[in-house]
Design a binder for these strands. Sequence first.
DNA 1: CTGAAAGCGCTTACAG
DNA 2: CTGAAAGCGCTTACAG
Lengths: 327, 327
Amino acid sequence: MAGVSVATVSRALRGLDRVSPETRERVLRVAEDLHYVASPTATSLASGRTRVVAVVAPFLTRWFFAMLVSAIEKSLRAHGHHVILFDLEDDSYDQRLMLSQNMLWKRVDGVITLNVPMVAEEVELVDRLGLPLVAIGSPVPGRACVRIDDAVAMRTAVEHLAGLGHTRIGYIGAVPENVAHIQTPQDRLRAFLDTVRDLGLTCEDSWILGSDWTAQAAALDSTELLSREDRPTAIVAASDEMAIGVLASARRLGLRVPEDLSVTGIDDFVLSGVLGLTTVRQDVAGLGHAAAELLLRALLEDDESTDELVLPTELVVRESTGPAPTG
Amino acid sequence: MAGVSVATVSRALRGLDRVSPETRERVLRVAEDLHYVASPTATSLASGRTRVVAVVAPFLTRWFFAMLVSAIEKSLRAHGHHVILFDLEDDSYDQRLMLSQNMLWKRVDGVITLNVPMVAEEVELVDRLGLPLVAIGSPVPGRACVRIDDAVAMRTAVEHLAGLGHTRIGYIGAVPENVAHIQTPQDRLRAFLDTVRDLGLTCEDSWILGSDWTAQAAALDSTELLSREDRPTAIVAASDEMAIGVLASARRLGLRVPEDLSVTGIDDFVLSGVLGLTTVRQDVAGLGHAAAELLLRALLEDDESTDELVLPTELVVRESTGPAPTG
DNA sequence: CTGAAAGCGCTTACAG
DNA sequence: CTGAAAGCGCTTACAG
């Protein structure tokens, strides 16, 4: 319709040089009139690039993951890329779906993993397919990773409580069976134990609770511990959602927060502010954006990084923590 | 490698008939050995179907949308389809991204919209591209829709409070400017006003609050109203997240719930149980699964429905509501 | 600056 | 039951 060959149309539409201004303008005008948009499926086959990125998450329904996905989608969209989503949550509680070749092969140009510790077969698969990858949270050997320092974050929380005079500090969020494929629980528990020890405090085994990292379970699991006379004076939760569960069970038991019990979390969850929860904030959207930027650099500039990028965390003191009760 | 033509390989791998059992087995074995997976990009170009579905949301970071996306992804995956995600949230608060041809054309086989009221241009676009579409929440003219009955849900909440003797009932969640492109706020507010009128109650204008549908804003916006002597004895929030904000501001003001103030929401948000919030539950995952099933039927069996599917809601009474204070 | 032609890797009638 | 060949709609050297 523009009176030129398909090759010229292709060049004009993609803004390549070596097309005369008049030709380009004519092609653009005709394309507009015809609502012409190049078929991405044909473009992909011919060019070998799909402009699609796989975002892989252990589950989507928790705030942290939804925030990441949203941030990543926006960053990639701004550079003409799309997100195909893989929710690895399986029906069976104790395992997750594995990354497979037909999820990735000729379907995506790159991968972003959200806190998923990849097994050897998966790492090898992504290597074999030659796909750039950026990990958020759990590192993947030999690949770029964006994360916070979980040890520092946990230490910040514990030291805040110790600074308020607490010496009997409990913990909720020990590694549960059903999320054993997630790295974070392990890192945070270890950091908690290390910090407590470094501060010269003791922590009884019975002060360390499991819960499946939900508020509901945290409320349930903490009830027995908080009912005791010799309960801890403070609880560190490994996530804000669990901390909220502890707040709820404390309220049900008639404990005043923070007079009788201090509670802190990690995240700065969307509801933490309104609920007055002291926490260690991480910039979740920032993690997502940083990961997307790293991947885009690998995709667009063929510059694949293998660095670790560690974003800072920040103590946010609200009403849920206060001086340890005296006596 | 299997000693047959590519046509036969194609037929064998896709499980078509008219392939001898021996040939099929040989092809499958060789494919396995070679880690062969057909290129989806070439398959799409040749067959005209991408096996990808666009899931379009006004934003992703709220629980309701993340739940939907997760449910949809799992349903579609079980039938060999993938999800490409479009987060329509824009940097500017007062508008959203529009659906455009290059998001959809030759990229997806169908569309699921999550509570996005489509403008005429968008409806026309999807029509022109010949894509099957299933709407969740906001209906799209001439297309299948899966939703709850917002009017019934809201009526259930209000009648529950009226049944407890409340006559002074406030509302939070009036239509805010920045989410004017979402249908739900309008429907719920209208149903609230209708029900209050039907019950013969009066509701002062000053009892109807805005908030931008977040807990934070709800806490802020409700503080002034709840500080008054002549405050309502109950507040209906149009969502659980806002109800949680109201609970927080009541607690800060020293109001006892439910003795001084009853609060209810709609959703049964993940934290509502642990926080003791009375609410009207909707089956969010059920909405997602139903929508995915409808779309898959259109895709796989060429049977596009235009029905409305209305899922039931259910009153869940917890500790946040009780008899109206006497005197 | 522009075009003809090969090629990306499949699927799908059409023959046999 | 199997194969040869056309076609899906682009991109990309290669000529000119």
